[in-house]
């Protein structure tokens, strides 16, 4: 499985390096633009990383959309882009479950690497610009989870579109509905603390989403592969 992960990471860092560099430049220059335009807010760090939607400035909206688009693009590239490089050789040697798991690991490792770099450099930039941010390791972890969630949801959406099966879409919506209802009622009843804490709620949603992702992608990986030829 590590072959697939290394193969995917190499593909992303070699073939998508221009996108990654563009993303880093924009994200790292964002605080400077904000400082120049004097639109610094308390939660600027969150806005910078696409973690919070704020419509008080056009720049904030652009930043939010840009962050989301970047991660969706990279995640889709991990799932689709490298299928032309020897994956037909790999498919016959490995089962679908391992392929799906390897994609999750690749996406998570990529997100972890990029967001760690962004987190460290942004902290330095904000310090140099004398902007006070309350960024912490927890924020960093939330940032990671948030991006992984965006990516996984986009893959689930893609798989559903590829399936084009109305019953399947309804089934997925039903599962998501059950999750939301159960999380607010059943799980809250079991331990109210869990859902007072947004971070833990996010972890629960990540686990839930991962299970759905594995089920959906394991079924649709051939369809995705078929479209990539």
């Amino acid at each position: 499985m590590h072959f697939l992960i290394i193969n995917d990471l190499k593909y992303i860092f070699f073939k998508r390096k221009n996108w990654i560099i563009l993303y880093l430049i924009i994200v790292l220059l964002f605080p400077i633009f904000c400082k120049i335009n004097n639109i610094i807010k308390d939660d600027i760090f969150f806005i910078n990383n696409g973690l919070k939607f704020d419509n008080s400035s056009f720049l904030f909206i652009i930043m939010y959309i840009f962050n989301i688009i970047f991660y969706i693009f990279i995640y889709l590239s991990i799932h689709l882009g490298n299928l032309k490089i020897g994956v037909d050789n790999i498919f016959l040697r490995i089962n679908k479950f391992k392929i799906v798991i390897s994609k999750i690991i690749t996406c998570s490792v990529f997100t972890l690497l990029i967001s760690t770099f962004v987190f460290i450099v942004l902290n330095i930039i904000y310090n140099i610009l004398n902007i006070n941010i309350n960024s912490s390791f927890i924020v960093f972890i939330i940032f990671n989870i948030f991006n992984i969630l965006i990516g996984m949801l986009s893959i689930i959406a893609l798989s559903v579109v590829l399936y084009g099966n109305k019953k399947y879409i309804l089934f997925l919506l039903l599962i998501y509905m059950i999750y939301y209802i159960s999380r607010k009622n059943i799980l809250f009843f079991i331990n109210p603390y869990l859902f007072e804490n947004n971070f833990i709620d996010l972890i629960f949603f990540l686990i839930f989403n991962t299970i759905i992702y594995i089920i959906v992608l394991k079924k649709s990986i051939v369809k995705i592969f078929e479209r990539s030829f």
């Binding site: 193969n7 190499k10 490089i85 020897g86 037909d88 016959l92 089962n95 679908k96 079924k219």
Partner: peptide, 18 residues
């Protein structure tokens, strides 16, 4: 079965390697 065929190897169209 949701599986790829067992003990099968192929070379289809052009070879794909790194």
């Amino acid at each position: 079965s949701g599986l790829f065929p067992p003990s099968t190897r192929s070379l289809i169209e052009k070879p794909n390697f790194l």
